[in-house]
């Protein structure tokens, strides 16, 4: 034997003709002198032959006709295109306007930096000072019942 013994990965790739030409020749030379490896290769050949004999399953109807009918009712796929900066311009302008509006509203509400922080908090507090609910009258009704 003038070549090292191939493992199954190499033998399998040899069988598929997927080794580089030099190694393909090397394995071929080994196989010519090694009955054990040649027998392994025969097993791979037999397995492949069995695959060829597997019953060829067919769909059994014209799927093309079915698909064509469904496609006729479906919208046509739109080709993708790269979005340029011009496409993003309206979005950018909208975002900038939103931020500007937010800042303007903030100043209008709090009167700028002069407004005391505690006053701003009380505006957004869910409960008024004293924990008195200024919501529905039913709150007090329920409380009375309890």
């Amino acid at each position: 034997m003038n070549e090292h013994r191939p493992d199954m990965i190499e033998l399998s790739a040899y069988f598929d003709g997927e080794l580089d030409p030099v190694r393909q020749r090397g394995v071929a030379a080994h196989l010519a002198a090694c009955p054990a490896c040649a027998a392994q290769l025969d097993l791979l050949r037999a397995l492949a032959a069995d695959f060829e004999r597997l019953p060829a399953a067919t769909l059994g109807f014209d799927l093309a006709g079915v698909i064509e009918g469904r496609l006729a009712a479906a919208p046509r796929p739109q080709p993708r295109r790269d979005r340029g900066w011009r496409d993003l311009l309206p979005v950018s302008v909208g975002a900038a306007a939103s931020v500007a509006c937010g800042i303007a509203m903030g100043f209008a509400l709090f009167g700028g930096a002069a407004a005391p922080r505690i006053a701003a908090m009380s505006v957004f507090d869910t409960m008024p000072p004293g924990s008195l609910c200024i919501g529905l009258e039913s709150c007090y009704t329920n409380g009375a019942k309890r």
Partner: peptide, 29 residues
Amino acid sequence: PEGEILAVTDPAPTPEQALADRQRIGMLE
């Protein structure tokens, strides 16, 4: 690591000579 499964072992007695094609296809399936 490539263990013994990937080493080319000495060929075991092969079933292909003993079994008919139909049995082999069944086995493959």
